[in-house]
């Protein structure tokens, strides 16, 4: 496979994952704002989307409809849902020959339909429908991917993009809220502020799953453990990392060559398999997440170099 094609696949699926994540962040922010109109949820949503500075430059004050528009459809915001989907499709065109007709058409249709919905500002009344549409199309693409693509290097690079982006996103969500999870003296084991934990779990579509697994006992450690170490949580760090590792292992097998990225992914995967949430809290959650985000970013660069994405 061409290095350029591998890169195109990787970024196509990173962008698709990012668009879905941004849509989910908007959904969460909107939901919280409905129930707690006096809160300041939008600031942390912008931070999580790494868009706080660019938003302030453009709009100044935080204002719900402006934030939603900025995150959803602003062409000046590189991680707006519109831009992510347009970039995903641009990459899909670039790697058209590596995709099945089903996957290409799913991405193309996603772009055509979502850009139609985002052609004008979305009224709050229509927001749930538009966000639902984005999620549906994202499912359409991943369904087409799973149902029609050969399990070869093409598939591996697509999955690497998805899970690297996902791990990055979930770590960011946790990091923006880490102060909420930080147990102060006497707080360990006590209940958290409802809104805050709800935000975190909603942002990763994990509210119900968490409630099931923990019988409704919401604790800082419980949530951190769920998102970092629980192997069953598909948007969690451990799950994402184990997928990254196995997809890289698949490439190592089929290409019979080993690179830096293999060492890095194995180290991170082991760390998440054996780590304990208590230790993380002891050493500092923020420090842990900062280091993890750096590791993920380095792993991304290693994959790009090891598989010759660029000339």
């Amino acid at each position: 496979m061409l290095g350029k094609t591998a890169g195109g696949l990787f970024w196509m699926f990173r962008y698709l994952e990012r668009s879905e994540n941004t849509a989910r962040l908007i959904e969460t922010g909107f939901r919280i704002a409905l129930t707690r109109p006096d809160g300041d949820e939008w600031t942390s949503v912008l931070q999580t989307a790494s868009a706080a500075d660019s938003y302030r430059e453009r709009h100044g004050e935080i204002e719900q409809s402006a934030v939603i528009d900025f995150l959803l459809r602003d062409k000046e915001n590189p991680s707006s849902v519109y831009n992510c989907i347009a970039n995903a499709r641009q990459n899909a065109r670039l790697v058209r020959t590596a995709l099945t007709r089903e996957v290409w058409e799913a991405v193309n249709e996603t772009y055509l339909e979502v850009s139609k919905s985002l052609a004008r500002p979305v009224a709050e009344r229509n927001l749930p429908e538009v966000l639902g549409q984005i999620r549906q199309y994202s499912a359409l693409v991943s369904g087409a991917l799973h149902g029609s693509m050969l399990r070869n290097d093409v598939f591996d690079f697509a999955r690497l993009g998805t899970f690297l982006e996902r791990a990055d996103n979930t770590a960011r969500i946790l990091d923006v809220k880490y102060y909420v999870l930080l147990p102060s003296v006497g707080q360990v084991g006590s209940s958290l502020d409802n809104v805050q934990w709800e935000t975190i779990l909603r942002s990763v579509s994990g509210k119900r799953a968490y409630a099931w697994l923990h019988q409704g006992k919401v604790t800082p450690m419980g949530i951190a453990d769920f998102l970092i170490f629980d192997p069953r949580m598909p948007r969690g760090l451990r799950f994402s990392m184990s997928k990254i590792r196995s997809n890289l292992a698949m490439l190592e097998n089929s290409y019979t060559d080993r690179h830096h990225c293999h060492d890095t992914s194995e180290r991170l995967d082991r760390m998440l398999q054996t780590g304990k949430v208590e230790e993380v809290f002891e050493d500092g959650l923020h420090e842990f997440l900062t280091e993890f985000l750096n590791d993920i970013s380095r792993l991304g660069h290693e994959i790009e170099t090891d598989y010759r994405f660029h000339g």
Binding site: M1, L2, G3, K4, T5, A6, R96, T97, D153, L251, Y255, D257, Y307, R308, G311
Partner: peptide, 28 residues
């Protein structure tokens, strides 16, 4: 390219190496 089952390359994917035109793949 897709229907012939061959790679679709741009100039930046190619270079001259040992008297041949070579394309940059994930394996060199």
């Amino acid at each position: 390219a897709d229907n012939m089952g061959v790679e679709l390359v741009e100039g930046t994917d190619l270079r001259v190496q040992n008297g041949k035109i070579c394309m940059r793949t994930t394996r060199g």
